[in-house]
């Protein structure tokens, strides 16, 4: 039973920008206490929630970029992670004002591929926690679904990196 088809650029924007549309949407979640009730209007805090996830994504992207610059041999390994970050940011950042998108200072990555990979792994775990929290707190069901897919993707990439030996070379 697939969810209702969503378009890449309109999903989150519609959920955040047009609350009346979402209120009438038949897939919006019920209220939190009952677990099964009538649809509710999305409160404005979803905007703040999306801004938080975008900030976490920007931080994670900076760590991947720093690791790749520090250890070019990791480029092939980390490109899929960077591609996922870019796609996730593309969907979410349209719903956040430019002023809300942070520009973090470049993180410092310790020398050596194992340490660089370790930094990316920890960063992805942190990102997963942030995206999970956003999914659970989202008032909009559409937004929760998008964030759940992001969490699943982040967990997949994290598991793929975790399966590698310490040196970062695929076994």
């Amino acid at each position: 039973m697939p969810g209702r088809p969503l378009t890449r650029r309109t999903t989150v924007g519609a959920a955040l920008v047009s609350p009346l549309v979402v209120t009438a949407c038949d897939i919006d979640p019920p209220s939190r206490d009952s677990g099964a009730a009538a649809p509710t209007a999305p409160p404005p805090e979803d905007s703040e929630l999306v801004a938080g996830v975008v900030a976490a994504l920007v931080r994670a992207r900076a760590v991947v970029e720093a690791a790749t610059l520090s250890q070019p041999d990791l480029t092939a390994l980390l490109t899929p992670v960077a591609t996922a970050h870019a796609a996730h940011l593309e969907v979410l950042s349209g719903a956040v004002a430019d002023a809300d998108v942070p520009a973090p200072a470049p993180p410092t990555i310790a020398a050596g591929p194992a340490r660089a990979l370790g930094a990316v792994r920890r960063s992805e775990q942190r990102l997963l926690r942030e995206v999970r929290r956003g999914c659970l707190d989202a008032a909009s069901g559409d937004l929760a679904r998008v964030l759940a897919s992001m969490a699943a993707s982040t967990a997949q990439h994290g598991a793929a990196l975790a399966d590698l030996p310490a040196g970062g070379e695929p076994s």
Binding site: A36, R132, A148
Partner: peptide, 22 residues
Amino acid sequence: VLLALVARSSGSVREWALTEAT
């Protein structure tokens, strides 16, 4: 399927669906 349940639920049901989807 589980992501569709995430969209339609909240609270503990959503959390369970998210964990299982992951």
